[in-house]
Design a protein around this nucleic acid. Structure first.
Length: 649
RNA sequence: GCCACUGUGGCUUAGGGGUAUAGCGUCGCCUUGGUAAGGCGAAGGUCGGGGGUUCAAUUCCCCCCAGUGGCUCCA
């Protein structure tokens, strides 16, 4: 007999050899929703045999661990269906991911029709309710099981001698090498849907075999699956591409080229308001503004190191009568030259050079999307030249700046990432291992001192140094870098940067910080649009006030109100057409003005306005002077909320 | 760049081998209207581009271009 602790109850006595699943069924009953067991803190299948005293907990399908297992099992189910329908297909890897799973197959690409066929086949296997059975193999035995799949063999060879490589799971006629654990049977996988296919490469290496990746989502309950589908649908409504078109923020014309957005008047308002805010902030932090050309000679980018390390991301060269030119993909080399333009004293440091420059990057055409990934980037860029001792204070200022910016824009869901080089891939970076190590440690210490939560990411550094990135999630859950603060230990040598130090000696220890706290205008506006669903704070709204007349009789008063607002610097439009008021409201909602002012008999007679806030809340009989003063304050304070109309309910 | 899907007036869209729907918007007339659809009428499309098959192509095939979702990459 063994003693099994389960939950807070008294330990239960069982015959040795009982399965973990039987214990859970015994205690929690059939409908517990458990998909696996936690035995002494280790995830196990239901079939796992208990042969000593231990503790057992159920892993519920709806828990994070349970969903992970269900999604993993669902990936196996997918592979079962695919190999049955396409006998030549070779499964490679199939992990669970957020909301679902994918599986990569070595097979011909498939389309929607095949996807539906596979889904149907999976449902058949769910109805058949195959047991998912764990089998143990030694390495030779396992090699036999996967003999006709070189991908699986490759994975296994890496794990020889490793115990985790020696199990496989069988369901019906299908068997797949896997560590597990898995759900006990296929009927647990009812709430799934195949969503899309894509091409991936074996080992994420484009020189190796192309694979067909099939994505699916999977949940423990119907409600979970439905909620996710609804979430995707809701996300679609906030999509900056959709809202950007509706609000006429930007356009992309194929005659100009993809990835090259044109800022329309309404988008330009957003862009210039953001820029004005940044100019104010940076002035307070001691930045000097400059403007540099959009192209420069090849030699400059060779000097900076961009050409060997960054050539793929730059537009191809232009041959001129006096040499070869490149469009700039970054501003830093030119800023370095500004620093080096005259002798610098330690008294001047830190020197902070800022520019709203436009840089051009040759992103792969297939990656371009809306404003999120473009080839023309309007950068809120700056470079700080300082001593090593000053680096910490400059980083701290920039992190604070980012936090202040985000608070004003209403962002709260972001995270810090310390991006490190990858010693296994040194050719991507400047080859100075000892500098990498010391600067990375320096940044780590700075972040720790600031008490900022962060994750570390190997292989995400710039080629010239480690960086702190601030990460966001897009509507569909993809992580993107927003802001970046980078430490550069290489520029000083490449550009012979130096200053006169306190001793009167020429000192070459100049550290450069590259920073873009507001990302690029393109990406920032995309996030801003999705975050607010186009309902921007008043100070950002392209149209802050829409004036609407009730009839032609109020035209003159409407013009007067419009003029008063314009005089206060408010972006206002007047609609005195002869459409009905309901129709005008409906039409103008599309442009999402912060406020609509309705003007009729009453207002004209009393010099008041009826204020309709964007959310429909209403305040009537407001004296025009009060409204102008109120909105002026709301705009100049960059208030994140519309505050001029008290909530109705 | 690679894979899949998509591409019909300014926008949203129906249709599908015999040159094409509807709504919104636009314009005109009527209406002078108090908070998400007042009425009538009109204009507007070589169905993304090019080639092919066919008596006939917007529809089928091929090649481009662009968009969407992924891969890769990245602000």
């Amino acid at each position: 007999m063994i003693s099994v602790e389960i939950g807070s109850d008294e330990p239960h006595e069982y015959a040795s050899g009982i399965s973990a699943g039987d214990v859970i069924l015994n205690v929690h009953g059939k409908r517990s929703g458990a998909v696996a067991a936690l035995v002494d803190g280790v995830e196990r299948d239901f079939s796992y045999e208990l042969d000593a005293d231990c503790s057992v907990e159920p892993i519920l399908g709806e828990s994070a661990a349970g969903l992970y297992i269900l999604r993993h099992s669902c990936a196996h189910l997918l592979a079962q269906a695919v190999t049955e329908l396409f006998p030549d297909a070779k499964p490679t890897i199939g992990p669970p991911i957020d909301h679902g799973f994918y599986y990569d197959f070595y097979m011909d690409p498939i389309g929607d029709e095949e996807l539906r066929m596979i889904e149907k086949k999976m449902k058949e296997h769910i109805r058949a309710n195959h047991k998912i059975i764990r089998e143990e193999f030694d390495n030779a035995g396992l090699r036999e099981v996967i003999a006709d799949n070189k991908f699986k063999l490759e994975i296994m060879e890496e794990k020889i001698g490793d115990e985790v490589g020696s199990s496989a799971y069988r369901q019906g006629d299908f068997i797949d090498m896997c560590r597990g654990p898995h759900a006990p049977s296929t009927s647990h996988l009812r709430f799934f849907k195949l969503t899309s296919t894509s091409q991936a490469y074996w080992r994420a290496d484009s020189k190796r075999e192309p694979l067909t990746r099939i994505y699916g989502m999977c949940y423990a309950t119907k409600e979970g699956l439905k909620a996710r589908q609804k979430q995707i649908q809701e996300a679609g409504k906030r999509d900056h591409k959709k809202i950007g078109k509706e609000m006429e923020l930007y356009m992309i014309d194929e005659l100009i080229g993809k990835g090259l957005p044109v800022w329309l008047p309404n988008g330009e308002v957003l862009k210039s308001e953001i820029e004005r805010y940044a100019v104010e902030t940076e002035a307070a932090y001691g930045y000097d503004r400059v403007t540099t050309p959009v192209l420069a000679k090849q030699q400059l980018f060779e000097c900076s190191g961009h050409l060997p390390h960054y050539a793929d991301s730059m537009y191809p060269p232009m041959e001129m009568d006096d040499g070869t030119y490149y469009l700039k993909a970054m501003n830093c080399p030119m800023h370095h030259l500004i620093f080096a333009n005259k002798k610098r004293s330690y008294r001047e440091l830190p020197i902070r050079i800022a520019e709203y420059g436009t840089v051009y990057r040759n992103e792969l055409s297939g990656t371009l999307t809306g404003l999120l990934r473009v080839r023309m980037l309007s950068m809120n860029d700056a470079h700080i030249y300082c001593t090593l001792d000053q680096v910490a204070a400059e980083f701290a200022d920039n992190i604070r700046m980012v936090q202040d910016y985000y608070a004003t824009f209403g962002f709260s869901d972001y995270s810090f990432r310390l991006s490190l080089w990858d010693p296994e891939n040194p050719e991507k970076y400047i080859d100075q291992p000892e500098n990498w190590e010391s600067t990375e440690n320096h940044l780590r210490a700075i972040l720790d001192d600031l008490g900022v939560d962060y994750v570390e990411a190997v292989g995400e550094a710039a080629f010239y140094g480690p960086k702190v990135d601030i990460q966001f999630h897009t509507l569909l859950g993809r992580e993107e870098s927003m802001s970046t603060i980078q430490l550069d230990f290489a520029a000083k040598e490449r550009f012979e940067l130096s200053y006169m130090d306190e001793t009167g000696a020429e000192n070459g220890e100049v550290f450069v910080i590259h920073r873009a706290p507001l990302s690029t205008h393109e990406r920032f506006v995309a996030f801003l649009t999705e975050h607010w669903a186009g309902n921007f704070p008043t100070w950002l709204s392209p149209i802050q006030v829409q004036v609407i007349t009730i009839s032609e009789k109020h035209k003159a008063y409407a013009a007067e109100v419009g003029d008063a607002l314009k005089a206060a610097g408010v972006r206002v439009k007047v609609d005195d057409s002869d459409a009905t008021i309901g129709k005008k409201i409906r039409m103008h909602r599309k442009m999402r003005p912060a406020y609509m002012l309705i003007l009729g008999e009453e207002e004209t007679a009393n010099s008041t306005v009826s204020v309709r806030a964007r959310n429909g809340d209403q305040s009537n009989g407001v004296p025009i002077d009060d409204f102008v003063a109120g909105i002026f304050a709301e705009i100049t304070n960059r208030s994140p909320e519309l505050s001029l109309v008290p909530p109705q309910s």
